[in-house]
Simulated assay, not measured.
Amino acid sequence: MIEKVEKAIARNQEALRSLIILHRASDTIYKQEVETMKKYHLTMGQFGVLETLYNKGDLRIQELIDKLLSTSGNMTVVIKNMIRDGYITKVPDCDDKRASRIHLTDLGRKTIEAILPEHYDNIGCIFDLLSLEEQETLNTILKKFKR
């Protein structure tokens, strides 16, 4: 059995190395990205909801889940807390009276408008270690995993 494991490692050594490097890079980027959210006392999930609603307009909960790659259980908690804190409200869906849409409040809009310039500049700083050409190459490579 040990021999099978060793052969599998040998066959896939570079792929395994790539995966570790990708995870470490992702973790480093996440830690740098989350610093901006902490200043505004938001979680990444809450920030994601604010940014998505700001850019896409009112959405159903399922649409938010799909756009943010979240789970329904997690999104339910995030939305409940954000309603409690005054960032968003639920409004009836004009097209489907059984459903609700999530809407930014004035506080939610002001908050995301305050965060976005700093957030976008932070992302720019994180990726400044790559040239524009390297960023484009990275994007092309990563898109291959989107199957």
Rank of each mutant, 00 (worst) to 15 (best):
M37P: 02
T28G: 08
I83K: 12
M75E: 10
L64F: 06
D66I: 10
D58W: 07
L53I: 00
V91I: 15
K110Y: 10
K56V: 00
A114I: 05
L116W: 03
L64P: 08
E33R: 12
H41V: 04
C94E: 07
F47S: 04
K90N: 06
P92Q: 04
L64E: 05
L59C: 10
G86I: 06
Q46C: 12
L50T: 01
G48Q: 04
I83T: 01
K110I: 12
V77H: 03
K80H: 06
D93C: 15
L53G: 03
R109D: 02
V91Q: 08
H41L: 14
L42W: 01
I112S: 02
S100L: 13
L68H: 00
H41G: 09
R98P: 03
V91T: 08
T111D: 02
S70A: 15
N81S: 13
D106W: 12
A99S: 14
L42D: 01
K38Q: 14
D66L: 06
V34W: 01
K80L: 05
D96E: 11
K80S: 09
Q62S: 14
T28E: 14
R101H: 08
L116T: 01
M82I: 00
T89A: 09
A25L: 10
N81C: 03
N55D: 10
L107K: 15
S100G: 05
F47M: 08
I102Y: 14
S72W: 09
L42I: 02
L64M: 07
I79P: 00
T43Y: 01
K56I: 02
G108N: 07
M37K: 02
Q62A: 11
D58K: 09
L53T: 00
D58V: 15
T76R: 13
M37Y: 13
G86L: 07
D66A: 12
D27N: 12
Y87V: 01
I65N: 04
L42G: 08
K56R: 10
T105W: 05
T89R: 11
I102L: 13
Q46P: 11
V78L: 10
G108P: 04
I115E: 00
C94S: 09
T105H: 13
E51P: 04
